[in-house]
């Protein structure tokens, strides 16, 4: 692909957002970054990714850490910033990729080739998906879903001024429960193709 294309996918837990991001990456033949982004960041610094993984997608606790001249003592904040800087560099270098989470819709907001998507889902459909994939009963699946979404929300909101899931942050918010994963992917392809054609 000659033009740069960056697809940022944010998602509610159980909405199939990760699978949708994977399918989009395969279709557009783009590398996809999620947790593996940290491996790349760690490798570039010649440190163990395990040391950094502990603080991945964690919120910054204001009571336990302090900022001085824009520097912060919070490992969670520093790991987040490392990833933000890394994806910014990639974007500035003109690379195309799909990025899942990591506040990427805000970090790369100024890039004209960014398409930001938020995948949400109906509560029952998300619980059913989590039960199926992780072999959990309904209660545990719901607990897991609530906890994961709580963490994603607090991570996002502690690093960004705008709120996680607020449709005004994204180019497109879509409920994957209405059409299912496959048809949601098809709808998104149409939208992305239209955006590419519109350039």
């Amino acid at each position: 692909m000659s033009e740069q294309l960056i697809i940022s996918v944010s998602r509610e837990y159980g909405s199939g957002g990760h699978e949708i991001a994977q399918k989009l990456a395969e279709y557009y033949k783009l590398p996809m970054f999620d947790h593996n982004l940290l491996d790349e960041v760690a490798a570039s610094m010649n440190v163990s990714s395990k040391e950094l993984a502990e603080f991945d997608e964690m919120r910054r606790n204001k009571f336990l850490y302090r900022s001085v001249m824009g520097m912060n003592s919070s490992p969670a904040d520093n790991v987040a910033r490392m990833q933000f800087d890394y994806i910014k560099k990639k974007a500035e270098a003109g690379e195309s990729f799909v990025i899942v989470g990591r506040c990427s819709e805000i970090v790369l907001k100024d890039n004209p080739n960014l398409i930001s998507i938020f995948i949400l889902g109906d509560r029952e459909a998300k619980i059913e998906r989590v039960m199926r994939i992780y072999k959990l009963d309904a209660r545990h699946a719901e607990e897991r879903m609530i906890e994961k979404d709580r963490r994603r929300k607090s991570y996002h909101n502690s690093h960004c001024k705008v709120k996680w899931g607020d449709s005004r942050n994204y180019d497109l918010s879509i409920n994957s429960s209405k059409l299912g994963v496959e048809e949601t992917v098809e709808s998104l392809k149409n939208y992305i193709d239209a955006r590419i054609a519109h350039k």
Binding site: V41, A42, M45, N46, V47, E51, L52, E54, F55, S73, P75, N78, V79, M82
Partner: peptide
């Protein structure tokens, strides 16, 4: 931390 060394 910027060099990848986290101090908890």
């Amino acid at each position: 931390a910027k060099a990848g060394h986290m101090i908890k």
